[in-house]
Design a binder for these strands. Structure first.
Lengths: 342, 342
DNA sequence: CTGAAAGCGCTTACAG
DNA sequence: CTGAAAGCGCTTACAG
């Protein structure tokens, strides 16, 4: 293995000079710097990460903690992950991905062993037990997902309240006066998935303000349950002309459900969803939707985290709570309601 | 930060005794071991990973290199990733996930900096330039994906040739004599996705042996292209009664395509796919399929890798090439061909 | 502008 | 059965 001692020898300088020449933390004569750089090239020198971490207390690694729940929508998770890993690399960091069930344990292990400089937590719930550990850790942390208590961490999430309001507003603008909102299952809420009721609250609020009728239902998170649920829900509200989906499985199942009933969007019913553009593309969902901005959220979280890491432990920048405003991606599934038959 | 020196002090022993008591590499009297363990508990001691890595040359981290290609089927990738991270953790390893475009560069960086003890490469192509770097690295490596040249690495993949044979065999058993195979786009093959032609070869072979007609087409890898492709392909082979899919996007699009043509599986046409069970569940695909075994492949690769890491650099175990035999998951989309109309 | 030395926190021969 | 010391490969005060 080639060490900085080898580089120093080849360049004809001391190890400290070689180190300073590479880090630039001390002025070294240009000629010497060049000799060191040449030696590095010649030998293919890359510093030993463990040794550097031991000396500097910086690993240049961030810990990414996901919760991969069985009934959570797995494909969407990859977008968050790639947002984090790609942005981290751009900023000079590698990413340790932890899928461990026991997030608390993982957090303690990585923090105490000094394996990482900071943490990004995905899928953060309303009351997330990982947060107290994170606040007590020496490394800073950023979350994707808005918890009840945000102090001590940087928080990033889609603005779900505004998303709900926007869905209703958009339908109202198109002339709809009776809407159905299909959310994730109740147990997702019970598990702390507060975004479910945040979007619902926003929708309800705006519906009340606009005098629009809104029926709210929770649907299953997978097939065939969600297919039956959708059929059932449509049966129960024959007067509804607009469908709001805050449930990826529902969005995936809807095309077949509509086809089976001989309905078309937007001719017979208008539809607006909330999921990632990537998801829509992959599964060819033809519905106008609010982008869940997974990649963007991952990138922002890691960027803020790195800024905080490099600010040092007594950096004084206040913690942020950034809620990304919803953006509607129009796919033509919203139109004026059909004129009532008969 | 609590160090092994603190533990030693509290336990009233030397640092080396504390270390040996914890590692068990030397016999220490039970009483002393207990005192050390108590001190560890009391202080919440967790060893500094960098220091340990520096001393032992082992990081207990494996590097996971993915290639996340734009038109590759992203959701499936997460299954491989979780197979790797979960199994690695069970074996005491953490996982550094690298999504870097430039896999060669990443490999060199992680290898030379001694950040990881070994590598798992996902999505390995027929001629994968990362492999030469991997062979030259001091750390061992395992691949998911069968390259042309397997020496120096442990290789894991689904047996795609056998998968192709099995698809044809299954259809033949049900009475079908004219089949269509829809593969991934040609450019996936050109990029080195040899599994595409491996499955096709197996299918062709078995079709020839059984006297079955097989039409082979490449379809687009996303909507709306693949929807049009499927319709087109079905138009061109009105006599075909069985459809083989080696293209996830095609599987996802097929329900709507069939619905639009007023066809049902298996009444009007029999269908067999090749994708992960998880994928089928998530998108409620109603087709019998060969499981791509993503999770299982990730787990096996990491297990073999860890065995090799712990065998040490002069371990003599021969490298393996494990092709997982295809398993059909019956979802009832195969039946006898319809009796010809007219 | 440069070098010799200490120190980061471990593990593991070397002595007893 | 246990301890004092060396060493892993870096960085960074301390001296010149």
């Amino acid at each position: 293995m080639v060490t900085i001692g080898d580089v120093a020898k080849v360049a004809g300088v001391s190890r400290s000079t070689a180190s300073y020449a590479l880090s630039g933390k001390r002025t070294i004569s240009p000629a010497v710097v060049q000799r060191v750089l040449d030696a590095v090239d010649e030998l293919g020198y890359i510093p030993n990460a463990g040794a550097r971490a031991l000396a500097t207390s910086h690993t240049k690694v961030i810990g990414l903690l996901g919760r991969f729940l069985d009934d959570e929508f797995a494909p969407a998770m990859l977008q968050y992950i790639l947002g984090v890993t790609n942005r981290a690399r751009e900023l000079g960091y590698d990413t340790l991905l932890v899928s461990e069930e026991d997030g608390i344990h993982a957090l303690q292990r990585l923090s105490s062993s000094r394996m990482v400089d900071g943490f990004v937590l995905l899928n953060v719930a309303e009351r997330d037990t990982r947060l107290e550990i994170l606040r007590a850790a020496l490394q800073p942390g950023a979350t994707v997902g808005l918890p009840a208590e945000c102090d001590g961490v940087d928080v990033f999430d889609l603005d779900f309240v505004e998303s709900g309001r926007l869905m209703v507003q958009t339908m109202h603008d198109a002339g709809h006066r009776e809407l159905i909102l299909v959310s994730q299952p109740v147990h997702v809420v019970e598990r702390g998935g507060a975004y479910v009721w945040r979007l619902a609250d926003g929708a309800r609020e705006r519906a009340a303000e606009l005098g629009v009728t809104l029926h709210h239902h929770h649907g299953d998170s997978s097939q065939p349950g969600i297919g039956r649920d959708l059929a059932d829900i449509l049966d129960r509200h024959p007067g509804a002309t607009g469908l709001l989906l805050n449930n990826e499985a529902a969005a995936a199942a809807l095309p077949s459900v509509l086809a089976a009933r001989g309905l078309r969007a937007p001719d017979d019913i208008s539809v607006i969803g909330r999921y990632s553009d990537d998801f829509a593309r992959t599964f060819s969902l033809p519905f106008t939707a609010i982008d869940s901005a997974a990649d963007e959220l991952g990138r922002r979280a890691v960027q803020q985290l790195v800024a905080r890491i490099e600010d040092g432990p007594d950096g004084t920048a206040p913690h942020v709570v950034e809620l990304i405003p919803p953006a509607v991606h129009d796919r033509g599934s919203i139109a004026a309601p059909p004129t009532p038959r008969g």
